[in-house]
Design a protein around this nucleic acid. Structure first.
Lengths: 251, 251
DNA sequence: AAAGAAATTTGGTCCTACCAAAATTGGGCC
DNA sequence: GGCCCAATTTTGGTAGGACCAAATTTCTTT
């Protein structure tokens, strides 16, 4: 179509189609830059630019001094791109709340759906996840993992990989927040209890109840997240005050 | 933290923080590469790499032979990144269905929410969108726009910009499909009727009914989308057959 | 003051070179 | 033969210079 197309884009498109067609198989290494340079009869600049492009679109995963690894993109890679793009929005309290709100909305809808349409197997998995969750109440790290696993069952039950990717993205976004939360066995217990109530509501096919409990559950979680947020604000305030003093001294 | 960090990343981070702080104001041009080169005491290679990075993360919009334009990212830019990343998945029938399924799920949940919590203003906007929709039944292009506008009201009613971005992304993904649909006034009429039923259900605060109609509405839409998909498949089949004949002739 | 021509700047591409980190090779040892 | 460690080669990251065509700016002309 367009004759004036940047060279890197053409190379990237060629490689992209080879990745999609399987000529470059998933998980294998990309040829070295000098090999590609040779093959495409172009400069290393262009090759490296093309690699950067493919990386940004999720066709490759690159580590600083290593050969790029080919990755046939799925929905997860699509979402891995948003992760970076939105990362900055998570430092803003309102942005994070907006995001968390969509999660609440999503999971409320999920449990409603499950309460109405859960199959036997879904129930079994939920039960198992709940049990694993119970075993870890006294271990915050392990509890966090099983907590995630419990929620993941909800997404998985949709039988559509996109939901799983969405869940993983939420987790990734919230991970840094969780790492700043203090250990609190009481919180674990509360979360477990709420999980149990959700499970029971689904078991009893009570969509209203399931949705309601999930709403409460996640609003409670939000309070935890918000708390870490305010902790940080206090810290920065303190450090600002400190630098303020320093500047006074300088004056 | 890490002493072994790629130079381009450091430059990108510096520029990123300047964009976020407003030192580089939204809409303004980035300094020329040579100016940046001078400022950061590094090679043009690194500068260009940093620019590519910022571009891929939505902090800049670049046109081939022009200065990059600074863009303070919002949720929409975050989603604009997914648009590219997922575009290839839309050529796969299963991928598109998975995507459409999430839209159905989302909008069913939206109308349920609206039926339960719509405020007077939301109703007014829905009514207006519906009326505009009605006026365009005989004009597919205009109908398409008002159709989108009607659904957009649902997302907007959540008072959270993320929902709007999600909607825009769905629209963008499906746009190319719609462009391949044949004009069909009958289809417009059907869609309008369904919109009306949804509106009425919300008006009557009948969440179940609203959700049900929305489900039917979007499943019908899916049939339209799917149809365009099969049209393409037939065409490629035909062209393949043609090339097959050609090769026979060559033999 | 507006329009057009000339000069300058800038982005895209190419090349060469260097260094440190990986990958590969080659021994030497068990 | 198989395994581990050192020497060697290859490779990715960065620097810096060069060239061209497209953009931009400056200057001239009307």
């Amino acid at each position: 179509m367009e004759k004036v197309e940047r060279a890197a884009i053409k190379v990237a498109q060629t490689l992209e189609s080879e990745i999609l067609s399987g000529a470059l198989s998933d998980g294998s290494n990309l040829p070295t830059e000098r090999q590609l340079l040779d093959r495409f009869c172009t400069s290393r600049t262009v090759i490296r630019e093309a690699i950067a492009l493919l990386d940004s679109r999720g066709y490759l995963i690159t580590k600083p001094r290593h050969r790029p690894i080919v990755r046939r993109p799925g929905f997860d890679s699509a979402f891995s791109v948003v992760r970076n793009a939105a990362s900055q929005l998570l430092t803003d309290a309102q942005g994070l709340r907006n995001l968390f709100e969509t999660r609440i909305f999503m999971e409320k809808a999920l449990v409603r759906h499950l309460a109405l349409h859960a199959r036997r197997d879904d129930i079994v998995q939920l039960k198992a996840a709940l049990e694993a969750n119970k075993q870890c109440i006294d271990n915050s790290e392990a509890f966090y993992q099983t907590d995630i696993a419990f929620h993941r069952v909800l997404y998985r039950a949709m039988n559509n990989p996109i939901y799983v990717s969405i869940h993983e993205t939420y987790i990734l976004w919230l991970k840094q927040r969780w790492q700043q939360m203090p250990d609190c066995q009481q919180r674990n217990q509360r979360n477990y209890d709420e999980h149990t109530l959700i499970y029971q509501a689904i078991l009893e096919r009570d969509a209203e109840q399931a949705e309601k409990i999930m709403g409460q559950h996640l609003e409670n979680s939000w309070q935890d997240v918000k708390m870490t947020f305010e902790l940080i604000r206090q810290e920065t305030k303190i450090s600002e005050a400190a630098t303020g003093e320093a500047s006074l001294l300088i004056d």
